[in-house]
Design a protein around this nucleic acid. Structure first.
Lengths: 209, 209, 209, 209
DNA sequence: CATGAATGAGTCTTCATTCAT
DNA sequence: AATGAATGAAGACTCATTCAT
């Protein structure tokens, strides 16, 4: 489905507010006011607040799915390189669309928005299958360990990045980096996360230790 | 602050519902209905819905703070043993009070409930300081590496456990364990998490690899 | 089901307004304003606008059902006397609660308020069965004709009374009775209707002509 | 006023929907959707929803008025024949345009659409005058009784037909004719109504009993 | 001539809270 | 100490209509 400029503007406004205040904590009037449009337009363009949420999901997730599929087929990369790319791409994706990933976290916590929850789970399951195949490939080639809990591994990656995102203020505080410009801090955090998770994954995947 | 039986009953009902439907998605009437009490009692006992949330936080967090403090002072344990106990206790705490930790996740995501957010951050900062001291102790003794990013390390622990909790259905599905009795599954997951995170921490902390 | 004073006040206000403006043409705010109560009270007492309508139906119809049942069992009356009582009671009922019967007319025209439509039809079907039994009794006794279309007969009674009620202004106009006090006119109209319908029924039921 | 094809298509769609759901229960968007046209066209062609209703009335009533006038002047018919023709034509008219007559019933019940109500009353008053003249003619010729309440008589005809139309499902049910093809049933009902009302009128008008 | 986009007013309902008892 | 009744504010959504194109 394609969205026009006005629709995207509304979706992105909603994205920010949903992230700040939660889905139920954001009224359609709030969204309309911030977006500078009429309240009725939300129903007009999306049908309902719920459908607006689904549109947001579609807009953000749509492009991701195919990426994972192409990555696995790339024969020029070793299994470990693929995993490392997966890590970096995940970090980039989350840190670039922090609002969206905050919302997704909320969706997974509560049982509301069942349509989205289901769609998100489908994405996640497919991703896990892909990773699983990568790992099996690495195991065949003797690079990876025999016993690996794929889901816990993914949970560590996803959990660490999410946790770092939602508590970045506290990260700055603890490391006395409150005065660092935001952009610089984001770059720093992403690099640290990348190194950190790669170390973790190496420990899980390889026989080196 | 002490809570009487009726108050605790209300708080625990609210805990379940807040976890299932989110704070804004739960009405005080929902809580009153499920708890089998009068709607007015919530305002009567707690003053407001917001204050009820704060009471929930106080009830659940109160006991934790002191535990961390006593752990660090225990001289009969090595730094690594302390860290490992921290891991197991965290896993137990989260898995035993899943509802509460789901709610806390929501609190950290949105900027609502600022009073709680602040209080929760204080708890977390203190915990990080304590862990930091443990690590410094280990570094002095030559057991731990020199360069350790404490916050990222904690984020990995907290993030992995949270992520595993909120997506446990999906864990069962992927590992074909849908028919396992819930209690058995909880035990299994906790053990796996414990081993998993300890491996990760060893990789971060020690020079072995 | 019993209604308290406030509920009855709301129901009767709604009755007037539904009759004047139709169900969809009346907003709950209209009702609340005229009844001098808060808008929220309608939901509070009845659950919804629809349920308020059902309450109105229950209040008005509840007492009628039993009356028809007792009438048929009265052995001191001849079949014709029973029919005549039915006519007079129907006229009285409609003319005394004109608003309600206007609303019922609307309910039968549109397919909205399906719950009420069904309930109303049940009442009507039962009434027709009762009348049918009365007539069969009269036929056995040789007083009534053999071939009688009960439904058309009832339609004539109900239709004539309804039509006379909704066009009474026009009746006054045509007969130059605009200045007659309303109460006097009601009495007059009821008497005329009674005589008129009894003549019609005699023509349908008996062999005299 | 003349209507073009598109206007007539809109009017007839509105007619069906108004009959099914009532005037207020039908939105202009409903009409536009069913008619397969743009919403704005209704305002464009008729000015407003209200005016569309008036157009519907004009389209349906326009042709009727003259018919009544010509009937009375026809000297080749006896007064009773004229009355009988009036009955049959009324039955045909109502049963052929049931939707429209359902709507008219609603218009007479509520005080909405005052313009239409007034116009409809004018038609009805003129009709009553015509009938009145027919009766006077019959009285002069000694065929009809001296004392006849013309309005009640018309109310019986109109009321019986209306009532039979709006409750025809129930007629079928009571007479176990649910499986009869609709067209066949319409013919049957019209014939029964014709005979039924003529019997009634004979009882009112003539001295035979 | 016809329409897609847009809107302000209005719809019903639910909310957390208060208050007299 | 506890509660049933009540309410103003706000919730999401639909309405008939307008207007630029």
């Amino acid at each position: 489905m394609e969205f026009n400029d006005k629709q995207i503007q509304i979706i992105e406004t909603a994205e920010t507010l949903f992230a700040e205040r939660g889905f139920d904590g954001t009224s359609v009037r709030d969204i309309a006011d911030v977006a500078g449009i009429n309240v009725a337009m939300i129903s007009y363009y999306f049908g309902s607040k719920e459908k607006l949420m689904e549109a947001l999901f579609e807009l953000r997730v749509g492009s991701v799915k195919s990426r994972v599929e192409t990555l696995i087929k790339d024969e020029s990369l070793t299994p470990l390189e693929k995993i490392n790319m997966l890590i970096d791409e995940h970090i980039d994706r989350v840190m670039q669309k922090q609002c969206f990933h905050k919302i997704m976290l909320g969706v997974h916590v509560t049982n509301k928005n069942p349509a989205i929850l289901k769609a998100a789970n489908n994405v996640k399951i497919r991703a896990a299958e892909v990773v699983s195949e990568m790992i099996k490939d690495g195991q065949k080639k003797g690079i990876f360990k025999k016993k690996i809990d794929v889901v816990l591994m993914i949970n560590t990656m996803v959990g660490t990045v999410s946790q770092s995102m939602i508590s970045q203020e506290y990260y700055r505080e603890f490391n006395k980096q409150q005065d660092m410009p935001d952009e610089e801090f984001q770059v720093l955090l992403k690099r640290r996360l990348s190194i950190h998770i790669k170390i973790l994954f190496k420990a899980i995947l390889t026989n080196e230790s």
